[in-house]
């Protein structure tokens, strides 16, 4: 589904942040990417989603066997790539329900699928809200505006459930969440698990992985994946920290 080869990424005025990433994600798999602060985790998420603050100096990324990097952010979204933002953006005055419907219909339109009308969409969203144990009042608020940290993250997951992507990247979705919110987020993600859908879970801590069990764990440090393994690697990291790995490599 996703194939990253030798990806080098830099940002203006700084040295390379990603220095040769290789990663392959197949349908149905959950990959966790862990690493200390500043290791390049968020850069990787942003580059995959198409944020243009970065320069890609080498490497390729294929999504469903076609080149991802030449696409605009919305084209990537239409193709089924979803990023749950680490810091969800506030859109004052933009109604949450309206935003969701616009996004979904934009994607459906581009795929040649029928658009939802208001009533069907409302029913559709209400069901998703129930799964996430979110209040309907949520829909009438402005997108992320004045939301608490937990509400923002739940809203990201709600959007993911509505847009039903092929590949979802969760960028530190667990940061700043209490245990209830964390479980709700995990429940949403797990409800979307499907043999044709993949996830990349970017996180600093192991705790989210108790609820979203990964097939593979990769450790990112200094812009490279320095170790890959199964879910037990996450536990090892939790116990020993990142130091031993980073030092070992250096």
């Amino acid at each position: 589904m996703l194939k990253i080869e030798n990806l080098h990424v830099g940002v203006k005025g700084k040295s390379e942040i990603l220095q040769g990433i290789n990663l392959e994600v197949n349908p149905g798999e959950i990959h966790a990417i862990m690493g200390p602060n500043g290791s390049g985790k968020s850069t990787l998420s942003s580059v995959l989603a198409g944020r243009d603050d970065y320069t890609i100096s080498a490497g390729t990324v294929k999504f469903d066997n076609s080149d991802l990097l030449s696409l605009s952010p919305e084209e990537r979204a239409i193709k089924g790539l979803f990023l749950a933002f680490q810091y969800p953006v506030e859109l004052p005055g933009v109604n949450n329900l309206y935003f969701l419907k616009s996004a979904l219909n934009s994607i459906r339109r581009a795929r040649g699928e029928a658009e939802f009308d208001a009533l069907d969409f409302m029913q559709f969203v209400k069901n998703k809200l129930k799964e996430l144990e979110m209040d309907e009042a949520f829909l009438q608020r402005a997108v992320n505006h004045g939301f608490s940290g937990g509400e923002k993250k739940r809203n990201e997951v709600l959007q993911m459930m509505v847009l039903e992507p092929k590949l979802a990247i969760l960028d530190e979705t667990d940061s700043g969440l209490d245990i209830d919110a964390l479980q709700a987020v995990a429940k949403g993600v797990n409800s979307l698990r499907d043999p044709s859908r993949s996830f990349i879970v970017v996180t600093h801590y192991q705790r989210l992985l108790d609820y979203i069990v990964p097939d593979f764990v990769h450790v990112l440090a200094n812009g490279r994946i320095i170790k890959s393994g199964g879910k037990e690697l996450a536990l090892e990291l939790e116990e020993k920290g990142y130091g031993w790995l980073v030092d070992e490599k250096v």
């Binding site: 989603a49 605009s72 952010p73 919305e74 990023l83 933002f85 994607i107």
Partner: peptide
């Protein structure tokens, strides 16, 4: 804000 909307599949002008 623009990037966020685009990531959700909206065209730039929308």
């Amino acid at each position: 804000q623009l990037f966020y909307c685009q990531q959700r599949g909206l065209r730039e002008e929308d």
